[in-house]
Simulated scan of single mutants.
Amino acid sequence: MSQDGAPEKKPPSAPGLPVGYRQGVITAITVMLAFSLYFLRFWNFEAPGAWNSLSVVAAGLIVIAILIQLVALWRSLQIADEREPVYRRTLQWFLAGIVAVLLGVMVASLAYA
C-alpha cells in the first residue's frame, strides 16, 4: 500500500508463455537430441561399409546439428525463455537443428547407398 492508503500498482509485465509451452519444447528438443546422438553413434560406429567424402559431410552435418540442438536446449532452460521473443528465438534454433539433422540423414543415406 502507498502512503495514502491506495494499493500500489505494479508495472505491466510482458505476457508470458501459456503453461506447458516450455515443457513441451524441452521434451521435443531432448527427443530430437537423443535421436541425433543415437543415429550418429550407430551410423559412425556400427554400420558396415567404408567411409567416403559423403560420409564425412554427413557426420559433420549431424555433429553441427547436435551442437545447435544443445544450444536450443540450453536456451530453453533459461529463465529468460519465459518471454515470447526469447522463446521464438529458441524455436528458431531448434528448427535449425532439425533441418541440419534431416540434411545429415539424407546425405548419410546417399553415402550408404
Rank of each mutant, 00 (worst) to 15 (best):
S2L: 12
S2P: 02
S2W: 06
Q3A: 10
G5I: 11
G5F: 07
A6G: 01
A6S: 09
A6D: 02
K9I: 14
K9L: 14
K10C: 03
P11V: 10
P11C: 06
P11H: 11
P12K: 13
S13A: 15
S13E: 15
S13K: 15
A14R: 15
A14H: 10
P15D: 03
P15W: 06
G16I: 08
L17W: 06
L17D: 00
P18C: 09
V19N: 11
G20W: 05
Y21H: 07
R22L: 15
Q23T: 12
Q23S: 09
Q23N: 08
G24C: 05
G24F: 07
V25D: 01
I26D: 02
T27C: 06
T27R: 10
V31C: 03
M32V: 13
M32R: 09
L33M: 01
A34E: 00
A34C: 02
A34Y: 05
F35L: 14
S36K: 06
L37N: 12
Y38T: 12
Y38V: 10
R41E: 04
F42D: 04
F42Q: 07
W43A: 11
F45Q: 11
E46F: 14
E46V: 10
P48L: 02
P48C: 01
A50V: 13
A50W: 12
A50H: 10
A50G: 03
N52Y: 00
S53F: 06
L54M: 13
V56L: 05
V57I: 10
A59E: 03
A59T: 12
A59Q: 12
G60F: 02
L61T: 02
L61I: 05
V63F: 06
V63P: 03
I64F: 06
A65L: 08
A65F: 12
I66C: 06
I66S: 05
Q69W: 00
L70C: 12
L70V: 13
L70G: 08
A72W: 00
R75G: 01
R75C: 03
R75Q: 13
R75S: 07
Q78W: 01
Q78C: 09
Q78A: 13
I79W: 03
I79C: 02
I79G: 04
A80S: 15
A80K: 15
E82A: 14
E82I: 11
E82D: 07
R83M: 06
R83K: 12
E84G: 05
P85W: 00
P85G: 07
P85A: 08
V86F: 02
Y87P: 03
Y87W: 14
R89E: 02
T90N: 06
T90S: 01
T90E: 00
L91Q: 14
L91D: 00
L91E: 03
L91F: 06
Q92E: 04
W93T: 13
W93I: 11
W93P: 02
L95N: 13
A96W: 04
A96E: 00
I98N: 12
I98R: 11
I98A: 14
V99N: 02
V99R: 10
A100M: 08
A100Q: 05
V101G: 00
V101T: 09
G104N: 08
V105Q: 03
M106E: 11
M106I: 15
V107N: 06
V107I: 15
V107D: 03
V107E: 04
S109T: 12
S109V: 11
L110C: 04
L110I: 09
Y112C: 00
Y112E: 00
A113I: 14
A113K: 14
A113H: 13
